[in-house]
Amino acid sequence: MNLATKVFSNILRKKTLALIIGLAAVVLFVSYLELSGVKTGSFLNRAMVFATPLLFGTLGEIYAERSGILNLGIEGMMSTGAAAGILGAFALRSAWAGAAVGMISGALLAFLFAIAVVHLRGMQVPAGLGLFMFGLGLSGVIGVTHAGEKLPYIFTKTPIPVLSDIPVLGEFLFQHVPLVYLALILVPIMWFVLFKTRLGLNIRTVGENPAAADSAGVNVFRTRYLCIILGGALAGLGGAFFSVAWMHYWLEGMTAGWGWVVIALTIFALWNPLGGLLGSLLFGGVHAFQFELQGLGFPIHILGMLPYLVTLITLITLLLFRRRLGAPSALLTSYTRE
């Protein structure tokens, strides 16, 4: 056995050990909670539902930022997605169609943004803020015809057979509407594409060094367009999740600023889809835990700033231990072909 395999198996063993210890700790903690009367399953179920729209948005924003574009307009695309989703569901008499229309509306808005920042090389921050305001206003204009109307076409809860019977875990992950499963499936897929495929490599290179990517034959403009539009489509889907899958009605301002949390979660995730899942679950969990936290005397305002605070603290801690966060180096810079 040569040295390299030895070192490798050593690392593998260490990681497996850590994983086993971690899992055991989680199982112990959950059983302790269950024994002390907390309904962990239903709590985690609520956390997962709350995490879903955030997860959609975060996954999309991770791809956009990985390609070097910061899109601050998530909240705008989410609001429009929520309104367009309801309109689509009413018009086409199907919740799935509503979700699709929400996605398309988000993608269209993102396309406008892409023209501004990729093609016209506009500044990304003001363009993103503009997109936010435009999306928010647009949602009010288009949604008004069905404001507060109850949607009769809804997703039904589809528990996955066998898996949903597992105690705690089943209620946590496998007793949801289909869109939640979609979000969960997207996480490994998007992680795999980003880190294990040629396409993902291209995206990351464009975000790190567009000039190098260009000279290697990657189409920088097309890659950025694609990532921004994907981000928009997912944000729109997240918005449609609020109205079509969760509330079954639309009200102006119903996304209530959750799109901004997505921006913080993207950084918290360190631009990694797996981190996105962790972050949105963590935040969904904290939010679902309000019942206990408010009982302990936590002021609501501090709970509201928790995602930002946690992100800040994570970043600072990481900076202390690792010189570099892994943010895409070319983030915020527009690319001109010389």
């Binding site: 539902v49 969760w246 509330m247 102006e252 119903m254 209530a256």
Partner: peptide
């Protein structure tokens, strides 16, 4: 206006 949090609560 925050229907998501209202529902969760």
């Amino acid at each position: 206006v925050d229907p998501a949090t209202d529902t969760l609560n």
